[in-house]
Computed example of a mutant assay.
Amino acid sequence: MEDYFSRYKFMGDYRLRKAFSHYFKKEKDYTIVPVPISEKRLQERGFNQVVGFIDHLHFMPLLEKEEGLSQHTLSRNKRLQNKNTFTLKAKVKVPNKVLLIDDVYTTGRTLQHAITVLKEAGAQDVRSFSLCR
């Protein structure tokens, strides 16, 4: 998986998004929300790796991410100390049931931050799915 993500995310081999897309399915009554990347990272990479996995599904990009330190360069302790860089997009209505999608679960901090924002905005039930841990 390390080689896969190196090629997909960091070398930009976008064709690899389809390798695991069959793991991402619509869950009844849940709105699919991808974990966003910052605008700077999107410009550098050219795509959001999570959106690549789910581009065959209907999803709602409800969250935005401020630029922060790249997670893959941080130690576990530094990741756990990171401030929440997620915000809700302006003028969006958050559904009651959300399925939050991410690529890699390391410490869970990214998902915790995103879930906090979604719940503060009114989501009642937030589940998550990550491709690997």
Rank of each mutant, 00 (worst) to 15 (best):
residue 3 D to T: 09
residue 9 K to V: 01
residue 9 K to M: 04
residue 10 F to Q: 02
residue 11 M to T: 05
residue 12 G to S: 09
residue 12 G to E: 02
residue 15 R to I: 00
residue 18 K to S: 13
residue 19 A to H: 02
residue 21 S to L: 10
residue 21 S to M: 08
residue 22 H to C: 08
residue 29 D to S: 15
residue 31 T to A: 14
residue 33 V to W: 04
residue 33 V to I: 10
residue 35 V to C: 10
residue 38 S to P: 07
residue 40 K to F: 01
residue 43 Q to S: 12
residue 45 R to D: 02
residue 45 R to W: 01
residue 45 R to A: 10
residue 47 F to P: 11
residue 49 Q to H: 06
residue 51 V to N: 10
residue 52 G to C: 11
residue 56 H to M: 05
residue 61 P to N: 08
residue 62 L to D: 04
residue 62 L to A: 09
residue 63 L to T: 01
residue 66 E to D: 15
residue 66 E to C: 09
residue 71 Q to C: 07
residue 72 H to T: 14
residue 72 H to F: 15
residue 74 L to V: 02
residue 77 N to W: 06
residue 79 R to Q: 04
residue 83 K to G: 13
residue 84 N to E: 12
residue 84 N to I: 03
residue 85 T to Q: 14
residue 88 L to G: 05
residue 91 K to V: 01
residue 91 K to M: 03
residue 92 V to D: 13
residue 94 V to A: 13
residue 98 V to T: 12
residue 98 V to W: 05
residue 99 L to Q: 11
residue 101 I to W: 00
residue 104 V to P: 06
residue 104 V to R: 05
residue 104 V to L: 11
residue 105 Y to T: 07
residue 105 Y to S: 08
residue 109 R to D: 01
residue 110 T to W: 09
residue 110 T to R: 00
residue 113 H to A: 13
residue 114 A to V: 07
residue 115 I to H: 13
residue 116 T to F: 00
residue 118 L to I: 06
residue 120 E to D: 14
residue 125 D to I: 02
residue 126 V to T: 07
residue 130 S to D: 04
